[in-house]
Design a protein around this nucleic acid. Structure first.
Lengths: 130, 130
DNA sequence: CGGAATCCGGAGGGATACTG
DNA sequence: CAGTATCCCTCCGGATTCCG
């Protein structure tokens, strides 16, 4: 085999080889690719964090969406919810082992977004100017 | 500085340090994090590809969404559209240099989705059983 | 072949008010 | 403090039809 320029279609292979695999990936992307999920996961990197603290950390998220996002992540086995029966109540969220594996791609994406934001906005402005 | 266990909040830092930076990242995630974008970008890995070919490759996408997704990516400077004035017409799409930088995080995410799909579905079933 | 235009249902998601 | 419940509206996205 020649290692010169294997174009390795990759995603194409993943989708075409197993028909339901493509389906699953599409589902996962549609599932986690919403407005808040990756952002919330990224915020859980540092360790256990309280609900209100999380809310303050994610700029602009509503209580509703934070709750829904956390519930979804908990259901998917990515986030662990631990509530302490005190008054006032305290609830801490953290990533599970599975959730921590998502951290890497999520942060990679966030870093890309940060680094490419300017270029994209520039391209957009250029495109719109004509 | 001690290099023992720096928890490096990362995304938190990115959002809290510059207020508009968090805004931008949230925007980018909300923008690219839809049902099809990452999947389409992944399919463009191999090089220039025709519209209809792309449509066949992405399982279940409608003409409308493929067109909209490609237009958005073109506007963002991530995809290059090249049309050849023949009959029947032929249009080829490919990633720009900027678009190719997105490929890495996108594929990382897709790979994660493929590898974690089973575990997540299992966690979901477990969660729903009670 | 590669779209554009239109219609339309339903999910996504914000604001607000209330609860334990 | 940490949610839940409700209202309401935007816009995502599928199906269909038409055009160069």
């Amino acid at each position: 085999m020649d290692g010169s320029l294997t174009t390795t279609p990759d995603l194409e292979v993943m989708c075409s080889s197993a028909p339901d695999a493509g389906f699953a990936i599409r589902d996962m992307l549609g599932h986690l690719g919403d407005k808040w999920t990756l952002l919330v996961v990224g915020m859980l990197e540092a360790g256990p964090i309280r609900y209100s603290e999380l809310k303050n950390l994610v700029p602009g998220i509503s209580q509703r969406m934070l709750t829904l996002t956390l519930k979804k992540l908990e259901r998917d086995g990515l986030v662990d919810r631990r509530s302490y029966p005190e008054i006032p109540p305290r609830v801490e969220y953290s990533l599970t082992a599975l959730g921590r594996t998502l951290l890497e791609p999520a942060l990679a994406f966030a870093h890309w977004a940060r680094d490419s934001g300017d270029a994209i906005r520039a391209a957009r402005a250029e495109y719109d100017r004509r």
